[in-house]
């Protein structure tokens, strides 16, 4: 606990931050078996900003997101969405899981996947009407995938699959977008397309949180960074938190000094 406090020094969020934050996590611990993957982590997402969650493999980045969404059950901890319990705020959160987490040979078309984003609107039995379809098509348009609407999802490239997942999240019409490694294994064109969609979301005042692997693009893509290695290492704007010192603490010896030198780091 003392360690935890040390990590939070000087940036302990004020109580009212919880009320206004689109996603506030307090004391979150998640373990698989006896091994905690996320240990006593606090996170306060700042509205209207793009936050990168970075950390080494197995550091609990994806697990933190999943626990925040109630997909995995945390051992302890609290999640507040817009100052309320998660259950009452589901429709305000959109989620993009890792692309590799599903079977792409599943019998479904691109448009059907995007329509899944409207589930909370459609419920069990409401029929899919032309305006639902239009909405789904508009989301596909935003990621540049309209001509693929009728395709079976197995025919898509990795980058196209990722864009379909993003379109499905857009269809959810949320204020907070949580993405799990949206740039993993996609081509450069898709990466550009995705980041421009995310930035336009931010410019509309929405909040974006993404698990991110490529440290080199953090300063270019994101406003804020959340660094985790089971425990939280740092949280703040890229200028404050994305420092060589914090990277060293997050990755231990795994980053070679040469690699750190190549990054466009905040002076610190």
């Amino acid at each position: 606990m003392t360690l935890e406090l040390a990590a939070n020094q000087g940036q302990a969020p004020a109580a009212d931050a919880i009320e206004t934050s689109p996603l506030a996590i307090r004391g979150m611990t998640v373990s698989y078996g006896q091994k905690p993957v996320v240990f006593s982590v606090d996170m306060t997402v700042v509205p209207g900003a793009m936050t990168a969650i970075v950390g080494p493999n197995g550091a609990g980045k994806s697990t933190l997101l999943k626990a925040a969404l109630g997909i995995v059950k945390p051992l302890s901890g609290q999640v507040m969405v817009n100052g309320n319990a998660l259950a009452s705020q589901r429709q305000r959160i959109a989620y993009v899981p890792q692309r590799a987490s599903v079977d792409w040979d599943f019998p479904t078309r691109v448009i059907d996947v995007v329509l899944m984003g409207l589930y909370r609107e459609l419920g069990l039995l409401r029929r899919i009407r032309p305006h639902h379809r239009d909405k789904a098509m508009a989301c596909l348009e935003r990621v540049g995938m309209t001509e693929f609407a009728e395709r079976q999802i197995g025919q898509l490239s990795g980058g196209q699959q990722q864009r379909v997942f993003l379109a499905r999240a857009l269809a959810q019409g949320a204020d907070l977008y949580l993405l799990d490694e949206p740039f993993a294994g996609v081509d450069a064109a898709t990466e550009k397309a995705i980041i421009s969609v995310l930035k336009s979301l931010r410019d509309e005042g929405k909040t974006v949180v993404a698990v991110h692997h490529d440290l080199a693009t953090v300063p270019e893509y994101f406003d804020r960074v959340f660094m985790i290695n089971t425990r939280k290492v740092a949280e703040g704007t890229v200028a404050e938190a994305f420092t060589a010192d914090n990277l060293d603490k997050t990755y231990g010896g795994r980053l070679v000094t040469g690699q750190i030198d190549q990054l466009d780091l905040a002076a610190g």
Partner: peptide, 21 residues
Amino acid sequence: MFRRPMGMVAFDPEFAAANGL
């Protein structure tokens, strides 16, 4: 009656869970 949630869980259980299913 339940084909929609069952289909969603079959395709992408994580997304289904994130939707509160």
